[in-house]
């Protein structure tokens, strides 16, 4: 177990190093010039050259990467071009809202997905199953900005149930968490359904039914415990999926997280922020995968980590 953990951690570090190379390379391959964005349209060639030099952008790429990596391992993510402030604290201040939103989305998708999947499995092939699966298909396919604007129009503007975007209380959280979690709920309902159907084929289920146990107890008591294992292992992976979703959802709802920061940085070509958020997001995704792998044997003792 310890050896496995050590190996996985080493591999994670390698992955992160690879990611740092790719982000660095990609942002420098964009055919756009951050100096032109900083210097403005009134600048002279001399001023632009001076700014280029100050930012170190006139040095060869490998040298720029080396100093970027050197600062990175010390936890220094550089300085934003547009905001003229350090990227690290900027991201740290934006992380709590994003983590809260993700937590809310995980709760939302499990609350939607698991019951829907159980229901569909118990009604397999019948109308209830078909309706649930059609809805799950719709929820998986709806673009998040459409869903977000629809929910906000219906429940915040017309019905007044929730505030029109913003951050601060539980009522602010519900709609964005639902927007982010609904697609996941669709996936989970499908996974839960097939996992449950698999489990319900087992002999011990037949035995339970044969001894006259009520169907709801068969499903919730015997079926659920076994069917839920592969599902819970997936939650760690959601962190990665949500990282892209928060960029859209946070913008629709005015949620002050790293997704919003990323979106605005892309618009102004603020490369240090783009690289910083990508790096932090990558760390979370790698961590999420690691947790998912480590959690598997805790839920199902038959899985051994070697």
């Amino acid at each position: 177990m310890l050896a496995y953990l050590a190996r996985r951690l080493a591999a994670s570090l390698l992955i992160l190093l690879g990611i740092s190379v790719v982000t660095f390379g990609l942002t420098f391959m964009i055919p756009a010039d951050p100096v032109a964005m900083i210097a403005g349209r009134n600048s002279t060639a001399e001023v632009r050259a001076q700014i280029r030099h100050q930012l170190g952008l006139d040095r060869p790429l490998p040298a720029q990467y080396a100093s970027y990596l050197g600062r990175l391992v010390q936890g220094d993510l550089g300085r934003s071009y547009a905001r003229k402030s350090d990227v690290g604290p900027l991201i740290v201040s934006r992380l709590p809202p994003t983590l809260l939103l993700m937590l809310g989305a995980i709760v939302a998708e499990l609350l939607i997905g698991l019951p829907a999947g159980i229901y569909a499995a118990s009604r397999r092939g019948r109308t209830g199953d078909k309706v649930a699966m059609t809805l799950s298909f719709v929820s998986v396919s709806t673009p998040q900005f459409v869903l977000g604007l629809t929910l906000i129009y219906l429940f915040a503007y017309l019905l007044n149930w929730f505030p029109l975007g913003g951050y601060g209380s539980l009522s602010h959280l519900i709609l964005p968490a639902l927007t982010l979690g609904l697609a996941g709920g669709g996936w989970y309902s499908r996974m839960m359904r097939s996992s449950m159907i698999e489990v319900l084929r087992n002999d011990y289920i037949r035995t339970a039914r044969a001894k006259g146990m009520p169907e709801w107890r068969v499903i919730l008591g015997h079926g659920l415990r076994n069917a839920i294992v592969p599902i819970v292992a997936m939650v760690g992976l959601d962190v990665g999926i949500f990282m892209s979703g928060v960029v859209v959802v946070e913008n629709v709802y005015g949620w002050p997280g790293i997704g919003q920061l990323m979106w605005q940085a892309i618009q102004s070509l603020d490369i240090p922020i783009i690289m910083g958020v990508t790096t932090v997001a990558a760390c979370f995704i790698v961590l999420g995968n690691l947790v998912a792998d480590l959690a598997a044997p805790l839920i199902d003792p038959r899985i051994r980590l070697r």
Binding site: L149, Y253, W255, P256, Q260
Partner: peptide, 8 residues
């Protein structure tokens, strides 16, 4: 106030 989608 920031982060406000103009439509919202």
């Amino acid at each position: 106030e920031f982060g406000q989608d103009p439509t919202v």
